[in-house]
């Protein structure tokens, strides 16, 4: 099946450009007239994922693959990794630093929010090596 794939780099601690990959993806999906509620869910997940990489990860990569049935968002980084994934998925659990909190982040809602907005989500993480998050959205409109 034909699919469109696009990848973006995410730089660690680059708060200025954080969110740009999600915005570009938003625009692509709008050109394809994907259902607007679905675009919004993808945008929320993309942004939260990007912020996770910027705050906790090392450099990372943001890839999206779109076909008529589903949209797959892969966000991976070479950061510290998550030692206890079940704990990280709890609402309000956060390892953000004080500096992050001062910027308004670190409410501990990132991963729970992603899980809520994605149809399916998978996390793999190796402490010390990095984290991979895959989110799948079913494209019911086409």
């Amino acid at each position: 099946m034909s699919s469109l794939k696009k990848c973006f780099n995410i730089r660690s601690r680059d708060f200025i450009h954080a969110g740009e990959a999600s915005i570009t993806v938003q625009q692509l999906l709008k050109q394809m007239r994907i259902d607007s509620a679905l675009i919004r869910r993808i945008a929320v997940c993309g942004y939260e994922g990007e912020m996770n990489v910027v705050m906790h990860g090392g450099d990372g990569r943001f890839c999206i693959e779109i076909n008529t049935e589903r949209i797959v968002l892969d966000i991976s980084d070479e950061g510290a990794g998550i030692p206890d994934i079940a704990r990280a998925m709890e609402k309000g659990y956060s390892t953000a630093s004080d500096a992050h909190r001062e910027m308004g982040f670190g409410a501990g809602m990132g991963l729970p929010n992603m899980e809520k907005n994605a149809d399916e989500m998978f996390i793999e993480s190796v402490p010390g090596c990095g984290t991979k998050v895959r989110m799948i959205f079913f494209n019911r409109s086409t």
């Binding site: 034909s2 699919s3 469109l4 696009k6 692509l28 050109q31 394809m32 007239r33 779109i66 076909n67 008529t68």
Partner: peptide, 16 residues
Amino acid sequence: DSTKNALTIDEMKQIE
């Protein structure tokens, strides 16, 4: 009328 001009995946690939 925003549903008129949807681009297909193949068209998006051509654009890229």
